[in-house]
């Protein structure tokens, strides 16, 4: 290590620390409008990244709840605890299928967004929304029966984890279905230009994919014994 500054060393330093700017992949430069009324490509990229980050945080939130559930479930001698109902495995299994099909529609639409005609996209999104609603209705009916059986939020750690975990997921589905419905309606009424349409579908597509992908994990953990 010599600190004598030779020409050769200067050139390597300039390569390491200076020189002409290399191209930046993800970040084209800001065109000079405060990032506010941004060029559409940029705001699309920002929105997608932000959604991905939000989903990361959401996963950590569920990880906290799932962690709690795992501690109780695998720490217990008997699960479900004596006197607590067995959860409706079959009907929820069918419900799982419904949600997965809905997710498949979403992903297909998302993938073919530039290929499918407008009508087909609208149709596929409508189906996705309806299947999501069906999932919610079936689950609501199940909850109704469980509560009637006497299985409540206060039924020990089983009831507590069941209703918070599944309830949080249900809230996510509810929010997603509302959002999906809004996008679908605006699409049907032709209220979105192509860029807006692509961004909205990509965002709801990401969100819906997470909500759908979480469900089989919850189903496997919570319902199966």
């Amino acid at each position: 290590m010599s600190d004598v500054f030779t020409e050769e060393r200067a050139n390597t330093l300039v390569q390491d620390y200076g020189g002409t700017p290399p191209p930046i992949g993800a970040g084209p430069s800001d065109p000079g409008n405060g990032g506010r009324q941004d060029s559409s490509g940029k705001s699309h990229a920002n929105a997608i990244l932000a959604m991905a980050l939000f989903l990361g945080a959401d996963v950590m939130f569920f990880a906290g709840l799932i962690g709690a559930f795992v501690v109780f479930r695998f720490g217990a001698l008997h699960w479900p605890p004596p006197g607590q109902p067995l959860l409706p495995l079959g009907i929820t299994g069918i419900n799982t299928g419904i949600l997965l099909i809905s997710g498949a529609f979403m992903v297909k639409t998302w993938q073919n967004i530039d290929r499918w005609p407008h009508k087909k996209i609208t149709k596929a999104l409508t189906l996705t929304t309806l299947l999501g609603m069906t999932f919610l209705l079936v689950q609501g009916y199940e909850w109704f029966r469980l509560v009637a059986f006497g299985f409540k939020l206060t039924s020990g750690t089983f009831g507590g984890t069941f209703y918070t975990l599944i309830g949080c997921h249900a809230l996510h589905v509810m929010g997603a279905v509302l959002w999906l419905a809004t996008v679908t309606v605006r699409l049907a009424r032709n209220r979105l230009d192509q860029q807006q349409r692509n961004t909205s579908i990509a965002l709801i597509g990401m969100y819906w994919t997470l909500v759908v992908a979480l469900w089989p994990i919850l189903y496997g953990l919570v319902y199966w014994n």
């Binding site: 945080a57 959401d58 950590m60 939130f61 569920f62 990880a63 906290g64 709840l65 709690a68 939020l153 206060t154 020990g156 750690t157 009831g159 507590g160 984890t161 918070t164």
Partner: peptide
Amino acid sequence: PVLTAALAMLVFDRLAGTTF
């Protein structure tokens, strides 16, 4: 978000009668 999940459970324990 992990703290949020824990806090939500704590609030449920305090207000909704769960026993996490």
